[in-house]
């Protein structure tokens, strides 16, 4: 097997002033060139914290207490902000959820794309500006020469997200982390943005880490899925396997709770819910953190943390997994 382009190993993140309060509890995964890995989970599961850690953008209140992030086999200095400036945009680009917050309202959008290029490359101004226009064209913005001089408030949410994507891809990174890139957008615009990302991926081979809570997006855009719950990796599988035969009861519950028109037609009108709420990070549970909400939980689950079990590319951390479906 080839070296993954990005490898996160046993990443553990804790609250700085309170050792023992873990936000990420040892998460590992890999991303290969040209693929899309979706990281799925609900608020507080650690999916955004994972992406911030990879970019070296962890908030001051938390710190890495174990684990590593490797890019093409080389360990990234994720705690060294200065060193990480050479990694961001050049090796790993990032697209955030709120495009309005990611852009400076006081500068024309073209200048902001230019700034990324000039930060990382020594180019004559004219060539750099030509790159800006090329990038804005590549992300399908209409009339890029004029639009480059527009201020963010003049653009729609979808257009702003295209500018942010142009910024993220300005220095041809090998990995693009997209953290809920379409959550703030209407469903028709969401489809346009996802299609743009997939097309850019096809043309450049960039690997995409798609962080989302939208299982529908995952079903139609990701190659592999990692499901996170309360700071842990619950399950990891090729997209088709996860949807057709989830093994972790949380993945099963998440799929069942998602509105699905076919299923609604079959029964009753109400959704299947997961009872209870996500545990607080301060809750000192000795066992599986999903146990209090889990239909399969036993005394074993409440006493010990399950280790990940792998069947080929499909892994899950559960003592009492959901029965395997025969895949056709």
């Amino acid at each position: 097997m080839t070296t993954p382009i990005l490898a996160v190993e046993n990443l553990q993140i804790s609250v700085r002033k309170k050792p023992g309060l873990l936000i990420l509890r040892g998460v590992s995964f890999t991303v290969h060139a040209g693929e899309t890995l979706a990281i799925v989970g609900e608020s507080g599961c650690g999916k955004s914290m994972t992406s911030l850690a990879i970019m070296g953008l962890l908030p001051d209140a938390v710190e890495r207490t174990a684990g590593s992030v490797r890019f093409k086999g080389r360990e990234l200095p994720i705690t060294d902000n200065r060193a990480m400036r050479k990694v961001r945009a050049v090796e790993i680009g990032m697209v955030f959820q709120e495009p309005m917050a990611a852009l400076d309202p006081l500068y024309p959008v073209g200048k902001q794309v230019l700034e990324v290029i000039e930060e990382h490359e020594q180019l004559p101004r004219e060539m750099a500006w030509k790159r800006v226009i090329d990038l804005l064209t590549k992300v399908d913005l209409p009339n890029p020469e004029a639009l480059a001089w527009s201020y963010p408030h003049k653009l729609s949410g979808g257009q702003l997200q295209r500018v942010v994507i142009a910024m993220a891809l300005a220095c041809n990174p090998d990995v693009l982390i997209a953290d809920e890139p379409t959550t703030a957008l209407d469903v028709t615009v969401q489809a346009q943005i996802m299609r743009l990302l997939k097309r850019l991926q096809r043309d450049t081979g960039v690997a995409i880490v798609l962080i989302t809570h939208n299982l529908g997006l995952v079903a139609h855009t990701a190659d592999r899925v990692m499901v996170m719950y309360a700071g842990n990796k619950a399950e990891e599988a090729p997209t088709r396997d996860l949807f057709l035969s989830p093994r972790h009861p949380y993945s099963r519950g998440l799929l069942d709770a998602t509105p699905n028109p076919e299923r609604a037609a079959a029964g009753g009108g109400v959704l299947r819910e997961i009872p209870g709420t996500v545990p607080s990070i301060a809750d000192p549970m000795p066992g599986c953190r999903f146990a209090p909400r889990c239909p399969n939980a036993s005394d074993l689950c409440r006493a010990r943390v399950p280790e990940p079990t792998f069947e080929g590319a499909h892994g899950y951390a559960c003592f009492h997994p959901v029965a395997r479906e025969t895949l056709t």
Partner: peptide, 25 residues
């Protein structure tokens, strides 16, 4: 119709909605 064409249904056995396909580009 445009809205429904853009809604990703969380079901891998269904075809990818037209608005998501890149083969047309």
């Amino acid at each position: 119709r445009r809205m429904i064409d853009a809604i990703p249904v969380p079901d891998v056995t269904r075809p990818t909605p037209p608005a998501f396909r890149i083969d047309a580009d």
